[in-house]
Nucleic acid binder design. Sequence first.
DNA 1: TATGAATGAGCCTTCATTCAT
DNA 2: CATGAATGAAGGCTCATTCAT
Lengths: 200, 200, 200, 200
Amino acid sequence: MASQPPTRPALRERYERRRQEVLATAARVFAERGYQATSMADLTEATGLTAGGLYHYIGSKEQLLFGICDDLMAPLLEQARPIAGGDGPPQERLRALLRTWLRHVAAHRDHLLVFAQERHVIEREPQWRAVRRQRREFEALLDDVLAEGERTGAMRFADRRLALLALLGMVNHTAQWFRPRGRLSAEQIADGYCDLLLRG
Amino acid sequence: MASQPPTRPALRERYERRRQEVLATAARVFAERGYQATSMADLTEATGLTAGGLYHYIGSKEQLLFGICDDLMAPLLEQARPIAGGDGPPQERLRALLRTWLRHVAAHRDHLLVFAQERHVIEREPQWRAVRRQRREFEALLDDVLAEGERTGAMRFADRRLALLALLGMVNHTAQWFRPRGRLSAEQIADGYCDLLLRG
Amino acid sequence: MASQPPTRPALRERYERRRQEVLATAARVFAERGYQATSMADLTEATGLTAGGLYHYIGSKEQLLFGICDDLMAPLLEQARPIAGGDGPPQERLRALLRTWLRHVAAHRDHLLVFAQERHVIEREPQWRAVRRQRREFEALLDDVLAEGERTGAMRFADRRLALLALLGMVNHTAQWFRPRGRLSAEQIADGYCDLLLRG
Amino acid sequence: MASQPPTRPALRERYERRRQEVLATAARVFAERGYQATSMADLTEATGLTAGGLYHYIGSKEQLLFGICDDLMAPLLEQARPIAGGDGPPQERLRALLRTWLRHVAAHRDHLLVFAQERHVIEREPQWRAVRRQRREFEALLDDVLAEGERTGAMRFADRRLALLALLGMVNHTAQWFRPRGRLSAEQIADGYCDLLLRG
DNA sequence: TATGAATGAGCCTTCATTCAT
DNA sequence: CATGAATGAAGGCTCATTCAT
């Protein structure tokens, strides 16, 4: 009755699997029509669930958005932390970071498009603090690598802050145009961006 | 029965002035809260007009969005065409283009944020063809300069298409973080991006 | 397919005990939040049962309300009938009736508050006829004692009907303010009301 | 657009008149079916307004309830204050107070029934403080008169607090059974209650 | 001309209840 | 027996827009 996730392992697993499906479907619809412009009726149609069933998995439309953002940021951070904190040469860490990042962006285009669309909400409303913190942590990981590269002399930036912002801009924008079977793979794009930043 | 703009010159001028004010105010509110999440009531409050008065100037909420996009793209194209089509060295034309572009972005941050937020609508709906065409024309102007630079040997790109997309990403993203009295001026940012693209 | 109460004595007894607990808990929650404003989910939380378990004991939300009303009226009538029908002096019977009544009200405040709150339903809907009959029987018991007191000259009323209605009003209202460890006991309140009605 | 009451006098007056009609109609429907059990659709049907039109006048369902409570309490207090604060003999002030009170109850039965039904909300929720204060002020006016009667020896109570509570109970309960063309007028009922309280 | 009352479809969400497991 | 996922109608409310005044 109350929409608590189940506690028994078998049910719990099925619940999580279905919840992931719902999140992915919702991310796709939101990316196409916009979060605000998508009605819960649109989502019941897209998921095949009924209104009540949908709420069983998501809690609310806003929690659904939160789930999408978390599915985007949490695994990315999980992968990025060990790479950024590794002890190889900074340029190699940056390249590895970019490849991982762009693979993630390519696999979660919809999530990132939704995230970008609702950025004004995420950056302003108190209840989105956790997501803001994830975003900032990721940017800090990037900046740490750039800073270490600069310190060791392996990289040189006219303005490191501007380089970081440019990088964020180009990668986030990639979600707008990337196509899975397109001319460029995620890794090729990553290397392209990396070269833009470091060459010279 | 949509109100028609007045035809007598004096009235016409006042009408246009006020309309611009309304567009700018609306762009600000949309940038903050989102286009869909902003109600016409929010706009009457922000503009100080009444519902009827607001409609006198804008026609509809969608036409208001259209007006914002046009205020963003039309003057930019106006300025960009002669620069891109000039006959100086391609690098100098690119630099000039970027400076003009970033000055425009800096002066129309709200417009660009709204444009980016509603991009999924603009790219998909038939009634937005005119705006899509503006966007594509601007990108073509940029690409022309890059292509000529490549042809003359003045520029070299591992992948010119990727360079263009990266450039679009970083410039558009600038609207998210640029502050008028910040550390970097629009021109400095433009030069920074230009160097990223061309150096080496 | 409503669950049937068990028929084997031992199970039956446990079932009844739990059912009484559920009724009392529900009465408390209803008294606090209102019958309509309380969801079945609120009740599963308050009782610690699951949705299915709750329905095992109550049948439906309306039958639960019926049970609360019956737990209020049936034992009261059971006690009141012999007192009202006794053969002592009417004043003494009235006093005894009031003491019993107020003890019952004090012990079932929640039940009475719910009863009063949903009175408009109970008085109007066909399925509540049995409860209406209980209420009317109790009022008739009271009126009989007053009538006999008037006939024997032991009591005198400017308007007996008004006196009865006033009595009903004050006693029912008692559920709103009575506190178990308050300054006045149920018996003291009963005597106070009795004196108001009879003195002079 | 925004549901602000109009400011121009002529419109303001019409608005207020209609608003009163809506409140009275809503009070009647709430008294019959219960506040919670009445849907806004029920109210649009009863008022003849559309959903939006209804909200133009009431703000929200809860503000509608607030308006009903205020229409009940504010004029009653307005009338009661000068009577309670007068300088005649306390018994006469009490009688006048009761007559005024019962005339008001008779004219606002629906309002009082709704007030009583939702009492648990009014007494518990922070946003109902203003109404609670009105209720308490009225009870204090009554108690002041009783206290002065007791002090001057004009009245004698076994327990003044209990007498006050009994009075509140009987008067409030009157809304349950009073009929405009019934056997007893509001004044006769008032005098009957007054005699119950003071005689002997 | 400018106003603001009115529209009514559509929004997100909750609910009492059922039934396969 | 007990569970909790699922139902889907109905809930209160908002919205962009119009038009009589």
